[in-house]
C-alpha cells in the first residue's frame, strides 16, 4: 500500500448508521484523514472522485438488480473490499422478507406498489462478490472500525472477535441476565464486538452483531422454550436484525476431531 491509500465508502440498502459510525470517530477522524485519501464518501463530503481505490467500505445489502451491477463494478474498482454492518454482512432487517411473498410485503408497505422494483431477497455483499474483511454489527463498533483502519495502515491483519458476546459479558463482570434473571438472551449465539452493550444494562442481547463463528442455536432455543417463549416469539427473536436461526456453518476439519 502506498503512502496515502485511497478510500471510498459505498451505500446499498441500509440506514446509514454504519457510515455515521465512521463520522462518529470524531477525534480520530483527523488522524485518519491525514493517513488516507478519501475519494468517495457522499455521506461526508461533496467531493467525489471516481476511479479505482485501494480500500472500499461497503454498507448495506443487495436488494435490486441495479445493486447487483453496482457491487460488481465496485469490486472491480477496489483493492480491498470491507463490508460494514448487519445489512452488508447478513442482509439486515430487510432480509425479513426473504422466504415470504415479496409482492405481499410491498402491498403492505407501499400505497403505490407499482413504483417499486426490487429483488425477492435482501442478501449480504459476500453472496455476490468476494469480500476481504467483514465488520458485523448494527451499527458497527467504532473500536473495530478504528482497529481495522489502523491495522491496514500498519500492514497487519485486523484483530476482530470471532466468539460469543458472553466472553465480553463475563470479562466485564456482568451477572448473566438469563441465568440470574430468566431474561432470554442471544449472547451465546452472537458475535462479540459490542462489549455486551445490552446485558450490562440488564437486558438480553438481541443479536444485532449477527452470528458468532460457530453458533449452535438448538440448545438455546430449547432454553427459551423453558423460559416460556412461544414458537412465534422464538422465531421472531432469532430472526430480527440478523438471522441467528440458521444452521451452524460447517466447521473446519481437523486432526483432533
Amino acid at each position: 500500500m502506498h503512502q496515502r491509500p485511497t478510500l471510498a465508502v459505498w451505500k446499498f440498502a441500509s440506514c446509514d448508521g454504519c457510515q455515521l459510525t465512521i463520522l462518529n470517530c470524531e477525534t480520530e477522524l483527523l488522524a485518519i484523514a491525514d493517513r488516507v485519501d478519501i475519494r468517495w464518501f457522499p455521506e461526508a463530503t461533496s467531493t467525489m472522485i471516481p476511479g479505482p481505490v485501494d480500500v472500499s467500505f461497503v454498507e448495506g445489502s443487495v436488494t435490486t438488480d441495479h445493486d447487483v451491477e453496482r457491487i460488481h463494478e465496485i469490486r472491480s474498482q477496489s483493492g480491498l473490499l470491507i463490508t460494514i454492518g448487519a445489512c452488508a454482512t447478513g442482509g439486515g432487517v430487510q432480509a425479513l422478507r426473504n422466504g415470504v411473498d415479496t409482492g405481499d410485503v410491498i402491498k403492505t408497505v407501499y400505497a403505490d406498489p407499482h413504483y417499486i422494483s426490487t429483488l425477492d431477497t435482501s442478501t449480504p455483499i459476500a453472496s455476490h462478490v468476494p469480500v476481504d474483511i467483514e465488520l458485523q454489527g448494527c451499527p458497527i463498533d467504532k473500536g473495530q472500525l478504528l482497529e481495522t483502519i489502523a491495522a491496514l495502515l500498519s500492514g497487519r491483519p485486523p484483530r476482530l472477535p470471532q466468539s460469543s458476546v458472553c466472553l465480553e459479558c463475563k470479562a466485564a463482570a456482568q451477572t448473566c441476565v438469563m441465568v440470574a434473571g430468566a431474561t432470554p438472551c442471544l449472547g451465546p449465539l452472537t458475535m462479540a464486538g459490542c462489549g455486551a452493550l445490552c446485558p450490562v444494562v440488564g437486558r438480553g442481547c438481541y443479536g444485532c452483531f449477527g452470528p458468532m463463528e460457530n453458533p449452535n442455536p438448538a440448545p438455546l432455543v430449547s432454553r427459551f422454550e423453558q423460559l416460556g417463549m412461544s414458537h412465534g416469539q422464538r422465531t421472531r427473536f432469532l430472526r430480527s436484525v440478523c438471522d441467528l436461526a440458521g444452521q451452524p456453518s460447517p466447521t473446519t476439519g481437523s486432526a483432533h476431531e
Binding site: 458472553c166 466472553l167 463475563k170 449472547g187 440448545p219
Partner: peptide
C-alpha cells in the same frame, strides 16, 4: 450438540 461453545464455563 448440547453445548453453545459460549465460553461462560471457562470465564466463570
Amino acid at each position: 450438540e448440547r453445548c453453545l461453545a459460549c465460553a461462560n464455563c471457562t470465564m466463570s
